[in-house]
């Protein structure tokens, strides 16, 4: 662990990613304290330019809503949806991949056919269909993103399990009569965890982009303020007040960038041999 932290800390880009991420997390945590009122409330005059009023540093949109409040609350929405959707995808993907890789044979065959099916359907269009059929809400968005993003995890877990299950320590577990579930969860999974964690951290970034895209199309939860929603609304006034569109976009860019940097840092630190690839 110490060795891992030392390797991770040597990667300046990854540390930069951690710093940006901590700022975004702080924004998400402070949002209810700093901006207790709904970010949908009209609190200023419309089209207040950024920097014009110290009370609203990022200005206001066409409805006089404070953009700073929107960005803070949006950080909450992005992070929560990104993380929970990834956890859903990891739970689905690891379970399916573990069963397929551990048991092999016809079970593997059937599960991999299903995985292939899900990989063929264009993920974002699939997410649009799911959210629009089940009505946009934080729950439906999280489940939709989870449903469309598990196949790569399943494939990864399966290949790890395939190579681990023939190893001696697993054979030893089988010989002493240990149950399958215990072998899978206690012995094989911990050894397969490193690449799964790396994939997971990169998936949070993709999930945040997907959520922003859905919200931009008007498929966000109508009760929460998301960065994508602000861009979707700001688009109408792109020619006169571009900052309404620009600012939340930069927030998404920085958050996704930070997550990618952290994910790559984790990857390099966990597989030092693959450095520089």
């Amino acid at each position: 662990m110490k060795e891992f932290l030392r390797r991770f800390a040597r990667n300046k880009a990854a540390i930069g990613g951690v710093v940006i991420l901590l700022v975004v997390i702080a924004m998400a945590l402070l949002a209810p304290a700093l901006y207790p009122d709904s970010p949908w409330d009209m609190v200023a005059e419309p089209f207040l330019a950024p920097g014009a009023d110290r009370a609203h540093p990022l200005g206001s949109d066409m409805m006089g809503r404070d953009l700073t409040a929107g960005i803070f609350h949006g950080a909450r929405v992005s992070l929560v949806i990104g993380i929970v959707a990834t956890l859903v995808a990891l739970a689905l993907g690891v379970t399916i991949g573990a069963i397929a890789g551990y048991y092999g044979g016809w079970i593997d065959n059937v599960l991999m056919r299903v995985t292939e099916l899900f990989q063929t359907i264009p993920a974002f269009i699939f997410a649009i269909v799911l959210v629009s059929i089940f009505q946009p809400s934080v729950t439906s968005i999280v489940l939709a993103i989870g449903t469309v993003s598990w196949p790569p995890v399943a494939r990864l877990t399966r290949s790890e399990f395939l190579s681990l299950r023939s190893r001696e320590f697993v054979q030893a577990c089988i010989t002493i009569g240990m149950g399958d579930l215990r072998i899978i969860v206690r012995h094989v999974l911990p050894n397969a965890l490193a690449p799964i964690i790396v994939t997971g951290s990169l998936m949070v970034a993709t999930a945040i982009l997907t959520e922003a895209g859905l919200a931009f199309l008007g498929l966000g939860d109508p009760n929460v303020m998301s960065w994508g929603t602000i861009i979707g609304a700001g688009r109408e006034v792109l020619r006169t007040a571009a900052y309404v569109t620009a600012i939340p976009g930069i927030a998404i860019l920085l958050t996704v960038l930070a997550l990618n940097l952290v994910g790559e840092g984790l990857n390099d630190a966990l597989n030092p041999k693959l450095k520089n690839r």
Binding site: A205, L209, A212, G213, F216, G228, I231, R235, L238, R239, A242, T245, A246, G249, I252, L253, L254, V256, L257, N260, L261
Partner: peptide
């Protein structure tokens, strides 16, 4: 490449409209 990889596709589209059209 790192920046382009993290940029939301619809947002860069809007920014390009702003620059090249408007």
């Amino acid at each position: 490449a790192l920046l382009a990889y993290a940029t939301p596709i619809f947002w860069i589209g809007l920014m390009m409209i702003l620059l090249f059209s408007v």
